[in-house]
């Protein structure tokens, strides 16, 4: 049976990063877990004609836990990440993001790189968790590698990902506790309406990031400034979140923009309550 018309698709399952970078330079799109790309036809988007698969590149499947940082290969799955960082102090929020997203079968397949590189996906759970932890990403192109802050990556990824391969995410172990709170409307597999990730650094500084409310996740710097140097209760952070709520909610199938924005202060309270208890949520 002919499943598809036209010329044969080029599908390279390469063994090294160098080969994947070469394939990219030749115009191949990256296939990681496929949980996003495989739904492209349902969105009216044709599958890429030329594909490079990452599943056989051993170095992209590794998580290295060092004293001062954790290095996460781009093809590590959500389930693999959750397992590798389970119980690491300070990374509770990232672990909660990796275990709370999607459903078990998707988490076994969907990768960290796929979560960060899907341009039109506002509800990615790992993105705000990594913003709160001040992570960096490593990109590879034909003439070499480059490490950049995740916020810069998010701002420029539409251009960068035309040629680059995301190879690693580097998470500094500077936080003493972190938490990730998400609001799906139902429990089974829905995208979260809004996400709040928070992390406290050893000096006490707080970082807050919000996902799924605007088209791309971002830090909540207005709230971070208000919190700076203050010891506040979760209820007080909720009040400060109401005062500094500068988000413009996006309309989407799960919820309208105003709702995504309105739920943020309550999620902030929950996130800080979790942080007080030492993280997670």
């Amino acid at each position: 049976m002919d499943m598809r018309e036209g010329p044969e698709r080029i599908f390279d399952s390469v063994a090294t990063v160098a080969e994947a970078v070469d394939a990219r330079a030749a115009g191949a799109a990256v296939l990681a877990g496929g949980t996003w790309i495989m739904r492209d036809p349902r969105r009216g988007v044709a599958l890429p004609e030329r594909i490079v698969a990452l599943s056989k590149i051993a170095e992209l499947q590794r998580v290295d836990v060092l004293d001062d940082r954790v290095s996460i290969g781009a093809a590590v799955t959500h389930a693999g990440l959750a397992q590798a960082i389970n119980g690491l102090a300070g990374l509770e929020g990232l672990a909660a993001a990796a275990t709370g997203a999607a459903n078990p079968a998707i988490r076994r397949v969907a990768t960290v790189g796929g979560n960060l590189c899907t341009l039109d996906f506002a509800a990615a759970d790992l993105v705000p968790a990594l913003l709160a932890l001040d992570a960096q990403v490593e990109l590879m192109v034909a003439d070499g590698g480059r490490i950049l802050p995740i916020s810069t990556f998010l701002a420029e990824r539409a251009v960068l990902l035309k040629t680059a391969l995301l190879t690693r995410v580097i998470v500094p172990r500077a936080a003493t506790a972190s938490a990730h709170v998400r609001l799906p409307l139902r429990k089974a597999g829905d995208y979260p309406v809004a996400i709040v990730s928070v992390a406290r650094a050893s000096g006490g500084a707080i970082r807050v990031a919000v996902g799924s409310v605007e088209p791309v996740a971002r830090r909540w710097t207005a709230l971070e400034d208000e919190l700076s140097g203050k010891a506040v209760t979760p209820e007080e952070t909720q009040a400060l979140a109401e005062k500094t709520n500068d988000f413009m909610g996006r309309d989407g199938i799960e919820a309208e923009g105003w709702y995504r924005r309105e739920v943020l202060p309550a999620l902030v309270r929950r996130a800080f309550a979790a942080l007080q208890k030492g993280g997670a949520a």
């Binding site: 599908f11 399952s13 296939l31 496929g34 949980t35 495989m38 739904r39 594909i51 698969a53 599943s55 078990p104 079968a105 998707i106 076994r108 397949v109």
Partner: peptide
């Protein structure tokens, strides 16, 4: 040995 959704698994990845 691991349960996955076959609707989203490109057959090229099960080689």
């Amino acid at each position: 040995g691991e349960p996955v959704m076959s609707c989203l698994k490109p057959v090229g990845l099960v080689s």
